[in-house]
């Protein structure tokens, strides 16, 4: 599904990623954890094709294609989805219009017929139940005037509608209270399947109680310094990032 090899990247001249290597197979859920500034969100943004980042070295192969050469919209059309840490507001554009336009562009790129307004309405209503969203959000402007929790739910709704092959969730738990977290995690879990892979980027272990990963990777200074199963997250929770940092510095895992 996804193969990242020795990836180096920078933003405005500052090196952020320092040789990341990661393989994600179909159906796997990988958690990427790390302290602030470790490069987690950068990795998510680079995978989605944000133009602000400069790839210095390495490669990203997605479904056999060189991902770096693809424009962001082509990546989306190829089934790659990013749930944003800070979902962007688009005043005056309704959620349904926005999402219908995106979905139909994706369908078009695959040679499928676009959904008409009625078909789309049926689809979005059905998907809204997944994240327990009120139907009034269909006509509300994209993320404009939403609470933090509503924005995050909206991201998962979009994911449910667009049905990606690879979903990257960038700190989807940040700013959520425990109830909202459960709803969002529940929505995500319903979207897990043997064909759909996920990369869950998070600072806290909390989210991983609800979205249980197959693998956990710890990112520090732009490198994966430790990988393991779901128990690694618990270890982090108990001992903090400092312990791993120590190990890393002492060369235990280097």
């Amino acid at each position: 599904m996804l193969q990242i090899n020795n990836l180096y990247a920078a933003v405005t001249g500052k090196k952020i990623l320092n040789g990341i290597t990661l393989t994600v197979n179909p159906g796997e859920v990988h958690a990427v954890m790390g302290p602030n500034g470790s490069g987690k969100s950068t990795l998510a943004q680079i995978l989605a094709g944000h133009p602000a980042y400069e790839i210095l070295d390495g490669e990203i192969i997605y479904e056999g294609q060189n991902l770096i050469a693809l424009e962001a919209e082509k990546r989306s059309q190829a089934g790659l989805f990013l749930a944003f840490q800070y979902p962007v507001e688009i005043p005056g554009v309704s959620n349904s219009y926005f999402l219908k336009t995106g979905l139909n562009e994706i369908r078009k790129s695959r040679g499928e017929q676009p959904l008409d307004a009625m078909e789309f309405l049926k689809l979005i209503r059905e998907k809204m139940k997944l994240v327990e969203m009120n139907e009034s959000f269909i006509n509300r402007p994209v993320n404009h005037g939403y609470s933090g929790g509503e924005k995050k739910r909206n991201e998962i709704l979009q994911m449910a509608v667009l049905e990606p092959k690879l979903a990257i969730l960038d700190e989807t738990d940040s700013g959520l209270d425990i109830d909202a977290l459960k709803v969002v995690a529940n929505g995500v879990n319903k979207l897990r399947s043997k064909d759909r892979s996920m990369i869950v980027v998070t600072h806290y272990q909390r989210l991983l109680n609800y979205i249980v990963p197959d693998f956990v990777h710890v990112l520090m200074n732009g490198r994966i310094v430790k990988s393991g199963g779901k128990e690694l997250a618990l270890e982090l929770e108990a001992f903090g990032y400092d312990k791993i940092k120590e190990e890393f510095v002492n060369g235990v895992n280097a």
Partner: peptide, 10 residues
């Protein structure tokens, strides 16, 4: 970028 990530061109 947000729109592009959802499949639309610039």
């Amino acid at each position: 970028f947000y729109c592009k990530q959802r499949g639309m061109n610039a």
